[in-house]
Design a protein around this nucleic acid. Structure first.
Lengths: 347, 347
DNA sequence: GCCTTTGTTGGAAGCGCTTCCAATTTGCGA
DNA sequence: TCGCAAATTGGAAGCGCTTCCAACAAAGGC
């Protein structure tokens, strides 16, 4: 009944090597013969050994502190699910791997935003930072953080972010394409797109996908009207009238996230327009919002919690694993169109 | 620039005692003279010393594993904000205090639900469990868990939970009272209440508060119609017609959580009833849902993230702090009515 | 064939803390 | 006043891991 977990010494004993060697294998260190490495891994499997993150971090030195940076203003969006889901995932990852996490909301409009990021490194001693859009594509910022010997992982990078640092995300272009494709199948020919803030490249890529689907269907720029919001419910509310009143009279409104779609929905209801009979509306992310609005929102599922967890794993592998100086890697997670009640045949 | 964090030895040196003694002070151990205790605490403050949870858990033995138990079915509610917020808070607490967390959804209808809980103790070796409603009031279950020498904290216990184990929550009765009071001030005299599942005592207490406000205003049971939902958006949708069609013709609908209120809202819109002009609707919890429905929901703010974190802190204080055998304690956090757009003067 | 590199392995210290146990001091009844 | 138990304090081991450094073996270079 003494279900004591096996320790690194148990593994060492079983595989007939020194503790040091096991540690090297576990951390992808150099200078271990393949034969020995295999033997150790075998013992690890046989014992179902898992490293004790507490012990590792104690011995490993360093702060073991990671930072999660959001661009949004916590005052105006205290409870967004996007943030919660990402943080939840990151927190789970930290717990598994023995890291600590500090979450920081640094509004884009703060004059000293770069400074606030650097403080995370200098004062808080973060060893790695997770940037969310649009920070995840701020090449200058990322380069400077890297220069200060702090690791970086970008969430949903669209461009520069991918070349400089590891990234996690989904194929946003494909997501945009898939949802548009579905709408086209339903007979829609006139579209509206509600995008995100300037610099949020992954949201722009959703639009790229939409455009690709359009052109494949023989449609072009004149069949689409677009506006930029800021991902909040409020901006969805504010921008929708402009779309509805446009001479194009779109029959499908594609939004770059669920909150804006929810905002659009509420305006549409107020005008007596029927969803989905008169107008189809789609979201993006598949947050709980999509199930709570009426009708429930057809959207694209993005695995936010997994993304948060993967981001931490990537940082960890840079920090202690063998990937210290490896080429930047992009971890692309699966997405899926979730059909609920807001997309139907074109009127 | 070597901003090494002070260690327990630094504190010991500064206060002129042995490391052992500092440890005793830090853990509220017995057998330390008050004078020494004070001296140590002074040094702690002077150095701004914080214990290193990793080291503590390494040395302390035990699994340092905590469990968070939800009654909901993860299949049907994969993304509820209530769950996320609680888990997020608990996770933050675990990270601060050096614990691990496993989250488990055990539907009430599972035949072997007790067994699943016990497995958390026997197989997973959890040292403490956090129960959410209605598990938090399941006296038999809590007693059995306690008997197996596993600590318990109840989230929002309404009755039995409070006597047996520590608890965290808000004053639900007062919350119900406050929101009803506001509605009465607005001139409402005929009420509907959408409650939660049987056994969810904290939701029942919200109703108690409502009743108290009613009777203070000279109103009684005949001025109220009530139904029970299951906290899901769907149940809000299903139950609202019954309320709307009731001969009482309520002018205010008080819901036991935000999701059900959102469901009610969507039905109400569909019928052409104007909110808040014709009908006031209120929620409970102040999750992001309340900001993305239309109109934004007037609700009662419940500090879910704080509750999760406090639950972990309470467990930790039982486990290593001095509260090992202390009387059960209830940690009551503040709530507040958040006025948004769904409550207005009675028609 | 001898010496230097390079590659591979093990020994041992130590991360910051808890805890067992021994040492010392104090309190108090006879 | 003495003796013994209780209260208080300190010493030291050790939790599971990383890492520095030394030891040794194999591989080239002259």
């Amino acid at each position: 009944m003494t279900a004591r977990r096996p320790t690194i010494d148990d593994v060492a004993r079983l595989s007939g090597v020194a503790r040091t060697t096991v540690s090297r294998v576990l951390n992808d260190g150099p200078n271990v013969r393949d034969e020995v490495r295999a033997r150790v891994m075998e013992a690890v499997k046989a014992l179902d050994y898992k490293v004790n993150p507490q012990a590792r971090s104690l011995a490993g030195g360093g702060s073991r502190l990671l930072g999660l940076v959001f661009a949004s203003d916590l005052e105006s969006e205290p409870n967004s699910f996007y943030h919660s889901a990402l943080e939840l995932g990151a927190l789970r990852g930290c717990l598994e791997l023995g890291y600590q996490l500090v979450t920081r909301h640094i509004p884009l409009q703060s004059a000293d935003r770069e400074q606030q990021v650097y403080d995370l490194i200098a004062t808080q001693r973060c060893e790695g930072l997770i940037f969310t859009p649009p920070y995840s594509d701020d090449a200058a910022l990322i380069a400077e953080v890297l220069r200060r010997r702090c690791r970086v992982v970008s969430i949903s990078p669209g461009g520069a972010g991918r070349d400089l640092a590891d990234g996690v995300g989904m194929d946003d272009e494909a997501g945009g394409y898939d949802i548009a494709r579905r709408l086209i199948e339903l007979g829609h020919r006139r579209f509206a797109f509600m995008g995100g803030i300037q610099g949020h490249l992954s949201a722009d890529r959703r639009l790229d996908g939409l455009m690709r689907a359009l052109s494949e269907a023989g449609l072009g720029a004149s069949d689409l009207i677009q506006v930029r919001g800021d991902f909040t419910f409020r901006s969805g509310v504010e921008l929708t009238p402009r779309l509805l009143d446009d001479p194009l009279h779109p029959t499908a409104l594609v939004c770059a996230n669920d909150d804006m779609a929810a905002g659009a929905l509420s305006v549409v209801h107020g005008r007596g327009v029927k969803v989905p009979q008169d107008l189809s509306v789609t979201g993006f992310d598949d947050t709980p919002v999509s199930a709570i609005v009426w009708p429930p929102l057809t959207t694209v599922h993005q695995p936010l919690k997994d993304m948060g967890r993967r981001a931490v794993a990537l940082l960890a592998s840079r920090l202690t694993g063998g990937r210290a100086e490896a080429e930047p890697e992009f971890d692309c997670l699966d997405h899926a169109v979730v059909e609920r009640g807001t997309a139907a045949s074109a009127p």
